[in-house]
Design a protein around this nucleic acid. Structure first.
Lengths: 202, 202, 202, 202
DNA sequence: GATGAATGAGACTTCATTCAT
DNA sequence: AATGAATGAAGTCTCATTCAT
């Protein structure tokens, strides 16, 4: 029983997480059995339980993986010079990602996780961490408001919520209708962003 | 025990649906057992199965009930004279409803149903019917665009999607954080609506 | 709540028995629910339980009804003058009955009852009563042997069993294959009867 | 716990089939619960469901096992040189088997299966396969008729049916009365066989 | 580290029977 | 006598998890 290298360990874990992700995307979290995950990952139940203590933990790992890219996008965007640019850059990067066909099927799982998180405390804190990144944007919005590049007619908190809603709502609609016209949505989105980031003080 | 009146039948069904709704809101759809629903409704398993052929059907009935009020709100709003008024009226009515504390707990179930609908065909068509009402608003938006009361810088379809996203995204955030500042969000929302419905032709 | 006349009572009971018989013939005894019997008889569960204390009792009544005609056939046959005539008469009458298309579907229930009787004591005694009529024929066979009209090369008991087997086996085969050639079987049967009832002492 | 050898697999299956057979013989097919089969086989429900997808399939396996020996007896008998010898050999072998006390209790299950097959399509085809072996004997009977070793006064088909009835009828009677005099029955049977297989052309 | 047969609690559902009306 | 909604014990089966090999 030779101990696996860390890289090999990670490979096992990723294999399981991706198998679970695919299964979840196809039949949902609850309809997916551990056997499904075993079959899809090519591992035996015993092997899977070597790397995860239970189904719950696998779901959590999947949830974490789902939020990882969103975090990176936000991080990047927040480094922009001014708020207006940041907002545009963030939405641009985010919707480029949403337009990626390879990710669309798997992103259904994000919605499943949102729902699950309403009912599962551990998952709630994971999803909460992701959502909490909204607060990272708060300062940027506030300084934008101070500098006059973001409207002062609305609360910074509300603005971030609204921005988040525009993303989450779209993700939901895209999950229901994968063929949704993303470019049209982006154009409408630009109007909103422009309204929130006036060229001249309003 | 002579035949129940149609009203009494409906009362039974509603009792079951509401019991299920409460259970779902508390522990989620899958963690809720038929026994839970029986206990909460005060009926025996046999009695529940008198009125619903199975758990699946109860979930569907709950889903349908969830969409009912939204439909009514939209219906009402669409009778407004012009697009701008309609849009404002619709959001006003909708967010009045979202502000109702009595409904907030149960509305978590809407999110659960959204997720479930990605994975369950029958539910998908029920949710789809609800979402499809967005298309009812399309004509109103289009005539608004013709009349110059709605911006022509974005596609009518995209505008309705965006409006829907602003609601769905908020529902999601409210489900996660019941104490979210709804009034602040409404004010930010007004900016968006104003941007979409210019006072003078743009 | 006027008490029914005895005739009306019997009508109710027969209605239930026949409904049960039809259901049993179609789906078997166990797959038939009391609801099935209610539907088919046009009575409510309460009404059925007025006339029978339970499903068990209905099955027993059906079993009794099944054996009634056989008993009559045997009774008649046993009144014949001599054994050889009696045997021929009995088989003739019995197979005339078996040839009646109206009875064939319902006779499947006889086989179901045979099986059930192996496992249900009350039913066993009912079926046993029917089978025991075989012993009524024993004396006739014995006196036939004494008179030289029935072979002495076999035990009277065995002869009655064999005769019974020829009927029961056919009933079974007819239940499986309703289109079985009954006339051919009767001709072969004649050979057997002839062998058992020699024209001259053997 | 590495993969079971095919032999070990078969052992599991047989253990379950035999446990079911014993239970069926005691209380009937429907009164036997999966728990009964589990207890008797010494396996847990999960283990049983590893090897059979459901109760239905276990019943079918039991039915198949019941017909297996009959098939072998018939096969053997059909290899005899001439029809008369074959018929005698077949009945001899068959009734030797019927006389085996070890088998008598379990053979009650054959009757249960006959009944069930009237009402369950899958079972019908299994039992049908067993019964259909009667047709294998048809050719032997026909050539016997051509050679003058089997009576021409009856149809070959009817003769095989009659022979089958003599067995099935006895099985039924033995199921009801285990102490039935099998030797007496065999002597009476010899008379019948002699009648069907005349020493000189008739 | 890995295997996969086995475990067993518990889920959904059925259905013979009852009883208030 | 009859109705039919309601009861609830019991049945079949699933599936996350374990552990001997």
């Amino acid at each position: 029983m030779p101990r696996l290298t860390p890289a090999a360990e990670q490979e096992r874990r990723d294999r399981i997480i991706n198998a679970a992700l695919d299964c979840f995307a196809e039949r949902g979290v609850h309809a997916t059995t551990m056997q499904d995950i075993c079959r899809r990952s090519g591992l035996s139940p015993g092997a899977v339980y070597c790397w995860f203590p239970g189904k719950e933990t696998i779901i959590e790992a999947v949830a974490r993986q789902r939020h990882q890219h969103e975090r990176e996008l936000l991080d990047t965007a927040l480094h922009a010079a001014d708020s207006r640019t940041a907002l545009h850059a963030f939405f641009d990067a985010y919707f480029d990602w949403l337009a990626d066909p390879a990710e669309q099927h798997r992103r259904r799982v994000s919605v499943l996780v949102w729902a699950e998180s309403l009912v599962d405390d551990r998952l709630r804190s994971i999803v909460g961490d992701g959502i909490a990144q909204r607060t990272l944007a708060l300062d940027a919005i506030r300084s934008g408001q101070a500098a006059g590049t973001v409207t002062r007619h609305a609360d910074a908190d509300a603005i971030t919520r609204l921005a988040l809603a525009l993303i989450q709502g779209f993700i939901l609609q895209q999950a229901w209708e994968p063929e949704v016209d993303i470019e049209g949505y982006r154009r409408a989105l630009d109007l909103v962003i422009d309204a929130l980031t006036p060229r001249q003080a309003d």
